[in-house]
Design a protein around this nucleic acid. Structure first.
Length: 373
DNA sequence: TCTGGGGTCCTAGGACCC
DNA sequence: TCTGGGGTCCTAGGACCC
């Protein structure tokens, strides 16, 4: 039998800001949502009292909590804190899964001889994060991953819930189905229509239990994990002109291409995302005969997809570019031109080096169109 | 002042192949 | 002579998560 500890940082971004600026302790700190079109990414518990929560549009948060302290997102800083937390977790287990920047699943199976019973270890981990990094966290400890996660959610803020072996179903049965990760508003509604309100109701349906919970033997989910790399941006103002969209597209391509090359990856599939002003969203993708990581090649494909698929005269509020079907080499394909590839490779090595040295704007964003002149 | 940006996973239909 | 069925790839959309 295994033991899983699910750790979830409390109001992570806001808590980091409070650590870095102690004068923010005890105050309603809201990260994100400052700019006109932004949303809240993290709210301290003091701010949550006023109804502010993450994903809430900024203007709404400002209405609910006018005296809130709104701070910009500092992703890099939060990543550094995240690394420090994960370094602590790795002291206690060789198997730590990062589920997100502020959530982890720690496998405590077999750590008993080194650190004592799992519950004691769980408690030590939480104290250690608090003492060394200054951040509060919550945790759930159970023999199943989903149960551990649900327990961590219920433990918030700043708590630890232990579900002893054999009591998993008793623990889960009275809880609302929407506490299950993967059960969002739509699924919740569909289940409610079938009179399934609690997890206990769900447990009476074997096929649903298998689908949403990891109790019992057939638990391993099949993630095949074809990961993707993408960037998207909401425009300051909706745009109608194709030329202006292409300029933004080129900037997105540079970001995606740079990330691909940074990870030495080639993409076999490229996707554009277009969100119209009315929020209708479409995606269009193309699979390439030869994988690529080069800005110019990527741009040719996605600008073609844009021109073929954007409805003329309709205002666009968001554009995105995404690369999938990733592989570590693009060379094996039979029909590509090796000389051209080699030339590109040299060119982009130089560009990326300059960017690393002098920042993203070191080399101007020259779209192929602009450069033609 | 309407609703960010990074993702993963699942479904479903059609093409194509054997 | 009315046309099975399984497997895989590609595409599009949508639910969901942090």
């Amino acid at each position: 039998m295994g033991w899983y500890l699910h750790i979830d940082m409390d109001a992570f971004f806001a808590s980091v800001e409070q650590v870095l600026d102690p004068s923010l302790q005890g105050k309603p700190v809201i990260v994100g949502g400052r700019s006109g079109r932004g949303v809240v990414t993290s709210a301290s518990y003091e701010a949550r009292k006023f109804g502010v929560h993450s994903a809430m549009p900024g203007f709404q948060a400002q209405k609910l909590c006018p005296h809130g302290i709104f701070l910009p997102n500092r992703r890099r800083v939060y990543s550094e804190f995240s690394d420090r937390v994960f370094a602590i977790l790795e002291r206690y287990s060789p198997t730590v899964h990062a589920l997100s920047i502020d959530e982890a699943l720690v496998d405590l199976t077999g750590t008993e001889r080194l650190f004592g019973p799992p519950l004691k270890t769980a408690d030590a981990i939480i104290r250690c994060i608090e003492a060394e990094v200054g951040l509060p966290s919550s945790a759930g400890l159970s023999t199943s991953r989903v149960t551990a996660k649900i327990a961590a959610t219920l433990a918030k803020p700043h708590g630890l819930i232990y579900v002893p072996s054999g009591s998993e179903e008793d623990f889960l049965a009275p809880l609302a189905v929407e506490l299950i990760p993967g059960v969002g508003p739509k699924t919740h509604k569909a289940l409610n229509q079938r009179r399934i309100k609690t997890i206990g109701d769900l447990l009476k349906h074997a096929e649903l239990t298998v689908r949403y919970l990891d109790l019992g033997a057939s638990s391993e989910r099949h993630h095949h994990h074809d990961h993707s790399i993408g960037n998207e941006t909401t425009l300051d103002k909706p745009v109608i002109e194709i030329a202006r969209m292409e300029k933004i597209l080129w900037e997105l391509v540079e970001e995606v291409g740079g990330r691909l090359r940074g990870e030495a990856l080639f993409a076999r599939c490229l996707t554009i995302k277009i969100r119209y002003a009315n929020f209708q969203t479409i995606t269009r993708s193309r699979t390439l005969p030869a994988p690529t990581c080069f800005d110019k090649e990527i741009f040719e494909i996605v600008s073609d997809l844009l021109r073929q698929n954007v409805s003329p005269g309709r205002a666009v509020r968001l554009l995105g570019v995404s690369a999938s079907g990733l592989r570590s080499s693009g060379w094996q394909e039979p029909l590509l031109n090796r000389d051209k590839r080699t030339a590109y490779e040299q060119l982009y090595k130089g560009i990326d080096k300059l960017r690393r040295k002098y920042g993203e704007d070191a080399i101007g964003a020259a779209t192929p169109r602009n450069r033609a002149g």
